[in-house]
Amino acid sequence: MVTLLQPRSAIVAAWPLREDAQAAAQARDLILEVLTGLYVPRDRVDDAVLMVSELVGNAVMYGDPPFELLLRSLEGELRVEMVDSGTISPAIRATGVESEHGRGLGIVFELSGGRCGWRNTTYATRSGSEGKAVWFIVPTSQMYPP
């Protein structure tokens, strides 16, 4: 008898994103649709949409195309990853009240409860291409059908 096990990290969805300022809107729409379809509680969906918007905005501003959004299933949670080919390592910056930029990763850190980070990776939608993934976790322990 053969038992099939879910890999520790399975890709649920992978989307190539636009390479312009409209990438954030595209990513928000994609993550909203898929998390709602997976019955993630609405407050978590709203947080995930905001975090995706911040990560995509950072990738467009500080990273390099191509851009890719990934959703991975882990044990009891989902990991949302924003992939770009830039070489700048993401870091939370201290910002003043008048600063127009620099709050994105801090927002992601707070909303994810510190369950975020970055790593070097390969693209799922572009064979052989390498980049970096900035990610956050969406807990799924309270998912339920309507």
Rank of each mutant, 00 (worst) to 15 (best):
T87N: 10
L71F: 09
R126W: 11
T36F: 02
G57K: 08
D84I: 12
S73N: 04
V138W: 06
S85A: 14
M82D: 00
G57Y: 00
P16H: 10
G76H: 01
E54T: 01
T36A: 01
G114C: 00
V56E: 04
L70Q: 14
S127P: 09
I92N: 07
H101C: 01
V138S: 02
R28V: 02
T140E: 03
E81T: 02
M1V: 06
A24K: 10
E130P: 04
G63Y: 07
I11R: 00
S89R: 10
R79T: 05
K132F: 05
L50N: 09
A124L: 10
P7Y: 03
T140H: 04
Y144M: 14
P66R: 07
V83W: 03
E130I: 14
R79N: 00
T122R: 15
V40Q: 09
T121N: 08
R28P: 06
V2T: 01
E33N: 05
R115F: 00
S129F: 13
L50W: 02
G113Q: 11
W135R: 05
P7I: 03
T95A: 14
R18E: 13
P139V: 14
E75P: 06
L30Q: 03
A24F: 01
W135N: 02
D84W: 04
G86I: 13
M61N: 11
G117W: 05
Q6W: 04
G57D: 09
P146Y: 08
L105F: 03
L78Y: 12
P145M: 11
D47L: 09
R8F: 03
I137T: 11
K132A: 08
S129A: 15
V45M: 03
S112P: 10
E110C: 05
E75S: 14
S85F: 00
